[in-house]
Design a protein around this nucleic acid. Sequence first.
DNA 1: CGCGACGTTGATTTGCCTCAACGATTGTGG
DNA 2: CCACAATCGTTGAGGCAAATCAACGTCGCG
Lengths: 191, 191
Amino acid sequence: MYDLILKSIGAYVQLDKREEEIFKSVLKHRTLRKRQYLLQAGDVAKHENFVIKGCLRAYTVDEQAHEHIAMFGLEGWWITDLYSFLTNAPATQHIDALEDSEVLSIEKSDLEKLYLEVPKFDRFFRILLQNAFVANQQRILASISQTAEQQYDAFIKKYPSLEQRIPQHQIASYLGITPETISRIRKQKTR
Amino acid sequence: MYDLILKSIGAYVQLDKREEEIFKSVLKHRTLRKRQYLLQAGDVAKHENFVIKGCLRAYTVDEQAHEHIAMFGLEGWWITDLYSFLTNAPATQHIDALEDSEVLSIEKSDLEKLYLEVPKFDRFFRILLQNAFVANQQRILASISQTAEQQYDAFIKKYPSLEQRIPQHQIASYLGITPETISRIRKQKTR
DNA sequence: CGCGACGTTGATTTGCCTCAACGATTGTGG
DNA sequence: CCACAATCGTTGAGGCAAATCAACGTCGCG
């Protein structure tokens, strides 16, 4: 159960046995059925969640009931509504499972204690957030500079596995385009 | 010269005198004239830069010679092409000054040493990057879900000072819309 | 079996872009 | 210190990429 998360951390910092035990002791295992919420907008995000199986999504819903996906959470990724988590404000994002999934959750107070007891976690999350920052910057630049087709192509190239796993309209929702547009882009490619 | 940066760090971690000295010793002061490059695309980003005066921008230039602003750097902000900085790949972004500016730069090797000597900096940048992550998430959601007008209004509300300081077409370039569109949005508001 | 989820296709609309021209400033070199 | 060039914002005309709206076929699940 802890294989993936320990390997993920081990890629950036070396934990000794004691630190590993401390860490594992604050992880709570949760299973989610497809469509089940991990977090609902309006509630406060009290956990940072590491996905060990399946696929989740974090998204907002606007006045016209349109969903806009902020991020996906695949195996090996962390997912939460970070704004809510940091400020204790009600979450603006929903998080739910696109497939039957499993996560390891850390409660906020436990994570804060962990930072103080094992400063390596400051380092680990610093590195993790650096990578996330770069990815988000690239996504922003794509969004403000590229056509729907360019963005779709780049997405497929970057996440080839996701194309198989999730419905196309979820990808549309992530890219900020309509499902119809994706359908037309794909059609045009086949001939 | 060090007031702002020490205050900025002090908001999240407490440095003792020795740590403060170590930190200051790796900072290099640079002044930039308006339009002067801090980093050119193609070069490798070797510094993380803290803005103490003025205003910078990081941006890409596409095949049609259109500029797309990835981020602004105002007083108190950090700016670099983080992807290049982390991987030593040639930068895809240019960074230059929109006004006469001053920055404090840390070289990559010095920053890495600093992380090891003073782990509080892992923590400081972890917190900084958390905030940046939240800001980027919000920008992404705005970009994929809002109209040009909504985005412009939100920008003005979020950065009222910038509206006065920088040309409108720079804001357009940051939002991924054209200067003409901003002009029309503004016109329509006056009556 | 029947319903909901998903993707496709067509017709139409629209928000924003492109292109072009034009003043008002700003700044700069002779 | 002036003349000329850039820079910046504005306005109009026209075009286009993508959204919207609507209908329909298929599939898989409860």
